[in-house]
Design a protein around this nucleic acid. Structure first.
Lengths: 216, 216
DNA sequence: GTCTATACGCTGATAGAC
DNA sequence: GTCTATCAGCGTATAGAC
């Protein structure tokens, strides 16, 4: 599986050229604003090859989606092997995706900055894909083990990875101009310790921590 | 401004019918999968009217976008008037948008679940729109006043509203089946107090709170 | 102001040569 | 397996009647 994130063999196989060209175009212009002719032109192949290999534009997008999710899945697996608790695993995922945002921009953009349901209706929604289910499972297990706060798994997952995804999107948009790794410490600090300042929480805890729900 | 969120006058004006029909279709099928003929059919008007009022499909989408952002802007303004500190303001915004997700589903979906850059390239990105700038300003002011933890404003905003947005998206997808208001307490609890469980934080703080960055 | 009928361009897709 | 030439359908937009 030498495509996309890994260097391709020399000479670069034809279907790899098609996929990388399509990835770049889809991210730059949006799937519906890209024609098969544009992919053909940028990949420097013929239209026939695209239809022979992938069956059309949607087939290319689908192969791209499946392949990138597979690579992401491997990434998560590796992290789960190397770390044994929820906090470390989440941290490693965040760091890894922050890094990838800088080094493999379009791959990250295709996952986090694209509305796949608009052109891949038969694909399950991305939140139900294997790597994202694993992320939720990591959080869920962390809650069960008592490593993370007792709370609804949906909420915990949304706060941890939703915040991460937001930063990635802002970086992809150009709103954030600095590499994301500069925000790593702040990000983890906020996630684990919460948003209310320590000072204020001590002074007027009933004001800044108005949530009355019992905690385990 | 009686459109969309407020009840329309009787008889319903023609351009309101066009906007609501387009909103529903865009959310259900995605902008590029909707033809002008479908809008015309569902709104029960002629094609000519659509081009006369809005100049075409993109004009409809643009008017919809501007109008909804205006309503959201008013919502934020009202919240800023009624609350004077960052935590209360953020809570009110989260509650309000959770509510709207249940009662005005498609309006929320058009804001949070649509990639506008794909069909409104001349519009500024949504994160730079007035209501979203105000959300960030609320957080930034909260940090300056010492109400919120000293951290990068991007990070704080991303964690607070990125987590919220993630939950909203999961609800819109159908992954979350219960009304969002059920998660309100958990959401605020996690945001203000952080993810690491109190128990574990006391036992092995250097493990669960590995971030060494100094705090004010 | 509203509607109907029509035209034009583009895009996805195919057939068949090499 | 790869390529070129061509087709058919759709979707936007307009012109002109009422």
């Amino acid at each position: 599986m030498p495509y996309l994130t890994q260097a391709c063999p020399d000479p670069e196989p034809l279907d790899c050229r098609i996929l990388t060209a399509a990835l770049d175009l889809f991210v730059e212009q949006g799937y519906h604003n890209v024609s098969v002719h544009e992919i053909q032109k940028r990949a420097d192949v013929s239209i026939g090859s695209i239809y022979k290999h992938f069956g059309g534009k949607e087939g290319v997008a689908d192969a791209l989606y499946t392949h990138i999710l597979g690579e992401l899945d491997q990434l998560i697996d590796g992290i789960m092997d190397r770390h044994d608790n929820a906090a470390d695993r989440c941290q490693a995922i965040i760091e890894s995706l922050f890094q990838h945002t800088e080094t493999h921009r379009n791959i990250i953009a295709y996952i986090f900055h694209t509305k796949h349901a608009d052109f891949l209706p038969q694909q399950a929604h991305i939140c139900e894909s294997s790597p994202f289910l694993k992320m939720r499972a990591i959080v869920e297990q962390g809650i069960q083990r008592g490593e993370l706060r007792q709370t609804a798994p949906w909420v915990a997952t949304a706060c941890i990875f939703g915040g991460m995804a937001r930063l990635i999107q802002l970086r992809l948009d150009g709103s954030i101009t600095a590499p994301l790794m500069q925000y790593r410490n702040d990000m983890l600090d906020v996630l684990w310790n919460g948003m209310v300042s320590d000072k204020l929480a001590q002074e007027i805890p009933e004001r800044s921590r108005p949530v009355t729900k019992a905690r385990s």
